[in-house]
Amino acid sequence: MLQLCQRPISVADLAATLDLPLGVIRILVADLRERGFVSVKPPAPIGLSDLRILKEVADALRKL
């Protein structure tokens, strides 16, 4: 888990990569955070001003 956390990674991605249930990952992350091994940050928030981001997402999805 610490290897995967070298760069920020979503908790859901951790669960998918390690093939463990989300609930288990959350407990492990909480334990690692308590011991100071990882930090947990909320994702960058999306607000009213982020129309530009939505346009970017729609354009990128169209190219899939």
């Binding site: 920020p8 930090s39 994702p43």
Partner: peptide, 18 residues
């Protein structure tokens, strides 16, 4: 959804927009 990182907390490693 929250992101976990082993970077020191002061470091401004950018977290992707999710």
């Amino acid at each position: 959804m929250p992101f976990a990182s082993s970077e020191p907390t002061g470091e401004r490693e950018s977290v992707p927009v999710a």
